[in-house]
Design a protein around this nucleic acid. Structure first.
Length: 396
DNA sequence: AACGCGTGGTC
DNA sequence: TGACCAAGCGT
């Protein structure tokens, strides 16, 4: 039961919220970033472009996304075009951007909209949430930005801003419910999309994370912040919000990789299973890189390992060289060191006859001239670069 | 709830 | 160099 006092406080809060919201929208009208997926003020964005950009931007910087966004639009200008593409074509276009399940889910979502929604883009948050790869943030963002509906949009930027604004004491993720409540009060019925994008711009340029970016101050620039008037965190150390738990140390792993080039200039590739690390992407044959392995002899030298079978088969007949330099790569949760071996002049016909069927079925022969276009993750591009430097053999 | 999932940039 | 960060999602 709200007492008279309670009601009064609530009214005061709401009017303060409206002021703050209006400040943010006004700030956006004159300071917003000009980005490829944003429409000029007053124009409604294409939902397909909004979805595409939002998914690409998940855990990914604006600068990294820009060229991929343009390339996708050039290849597939409409949702229908993307849905009609093959998964491999989509993976090729996504190669290098990371978090590859996004590409598979995006493709699947496009197909679902074409089939289950008859090509009519869902404009309700709860419907968008059902699509693969679209979670709470993306569903709210698309709802607000593409369809002008009210939605409470929370990404890491907005989370940080609100945690500071309301001086939320809890540690993430426990702080999320309080953050949502505060933001819900601030979110306007009209222009919720502009409001969300405004906060993300403010998070990028003003209410920055503790670590500074190039050319920017390490401390939040509260003096020019449109939220400063109502901000609680500003009176303490804003960079101390949001409170976060400590992260685990990254593990180190090792493995081996083989560049196998045939006498007719094809290179052996394998495709990763759809689920898990680098799902659906093309790799050169590798050992496993199990967690906790310390030495190369610890690798599971399984009798059915494709890589070991290839090495055994050709060690005496082909031109083989183990490079004296490794490829180092950092994934999200472990570091990998890959020893690289290059073999050239391999007789493909000999291999067809000698290799067991189940191993042979794993090999995809790629013409060297087409290697650059394959759906290869960055870690394999590094392998190519190293081999080129040592042997001067590949193309790119 | 906590973890698996990429990559490039910055200090 | 190690650690942290960037418009999160799925399980």
């Amino acid at each position: 039961m709200p007492s008279e006092t309670k009601r009064k406080i609530t009214d005061t809060d709401n009017s303060a919220c409206m002021d703050m919201t209006q400040h943010v929208l006004n700030w956006y009208d004159s300071h917003r970033r000009d980005l490829p997926w944003r429409m000029p003020p007053g124009q409604r964005a294409d939902p397909y472009k909004v979805m595409l950009s939002e998914i690409m931007l998940q855990q990914t910087t604006v600068e990294a996304v820009k060229p991929y966004f343009q390339r996708f639009l050039a290849l597939w200008p409409t949702l229908s075009d993307l849905a009609a593409a093959s998964q491999d074509e989509v993976m090729k276009a996504w190669a290098g951007l990371g978090y590859y399940s996004r590409a598979r889910n995006l493709h699947k979502a496009a197909q679902m909209i074409m089939t289950e929604y008859a090509g009519q883009f869902p404009d309700q948050e709860d419907e968008l949430l059902k699509l693969p790869g679209i979670g709470s943030y993306s569903a709210a963002a698309i709802t607000a930005i593409a369809f002008g509906r009210r939605a409470v949009v929370i990404d890491a930027n907005i989370e940080r801003i609100i945690a500071r604004y309301a001086a939320i004491p809890e540690t993430l993720p426990a702080a999320k419910s309080a953050i949502h409540a505060v933001l819900d009060n601030l979110t306007p019925n009209e222009r919720a999309g502009d409001f969300a994008q405004a906060l993300m711009d403010i998070g990028s340029r003003i209410c920055t994370p503790p670590r500074k970016k190039a050319g920017q101050l390490s401390q939040p620039q509260c003096l020019i912040c449109p939220l400063a008037l109502g901000c609680q965190g500003r009176h303490a150390d804003p960079s101390s919000w949001p409170r976060k738990p400590a992260k685990r140390k990254r593990a180190r792993r090792r493995g081996e990789v083989l560049i196998l080039i045939s006498d007719d200039n094809h290179v052996a590739l394998t495709r990763r299973p759809d689920q898990g690390l680098l799902g659906g992407m093309m790799l050169f044959p590798t050992t496993g890189w199990p967690d906790g392995s310390r030495r190369h002899v610890d690798y599971p030298v399984a009798a059915n390992s494709l890589l070991w079978a290839l090495l055994d088969m050709y060690q005496s007949t082909a031109d083989q060289q183990r490079l004296n330099q490794s490829v180092h790569h950092i994934f999200s949760h472990f570091e990998l060191e890959l020893k690289v071996t290059v073999m050239t002049g391999v007789r493909r016909q000999l291999m067809q006859n000698a290799l067991a069927q189940d191993l042979l079925a794993q090999v995809i022969w790629c013409p060297l001239t087409e290697l650059a276009g394959e759906a290869m993750p960055s870690v394999m591009r590094k392998v190519v670069t190293l081999a080129e430097a040592h042997r001067g053999l590949l193309l790119s």
